[in-house]
């Protein structure tokens, strides 16, 4: 797990405290019951804080899993 992935896992752990470290990499909206629209907004706010990103809420529908979020952050961190 690289540094970015570790930080991302910490964000997920804050928003979804019920997830174990092993469950986080495969987490998705379908597999995590607590991942509702409010949790999604909270996750975006936490990501913005952690990575200093400005995430447009229009992109919210893309961010449906740990892997999707990871790709999104990698892409936008690279741009910024």
């Amino acid at each position: 797990m690289d540094e970015m992935e570790t930080r991302l896992a910490r964000c997920f752990s804050s928003v979804f405290p019920e997830l174990t470290a092993e469950q986080i990499p495969s987490a998705s909206m379908d597999s995590v019951p607590a991942w509702d629209s409010l949790a999604a907004v909270t996750l975006v706010a936490v990501l913005q804080e952690e990575f200093g990103l400005q995430i447009d809420l229009i992109d919210l529908p893309e961010l449906v899993s740990f892997v999707a979020v990871q790709n999104y952050v990698r892409k936008h961190k690279a741009v910024s």
């Binding site: 964000c11 804050s14 405290p17 909270t42 706010a45 936490v46 804080e49």
Partner: peptide
């Protein structure tokens, strides 16, 4: 306090 810190407090 940032949001991560706030969320972490509930784990105590």
């Amino acid at each position: 306090m940032n949001l991560v810190e706030a969320l972490e407090i509930f784990k105590q």
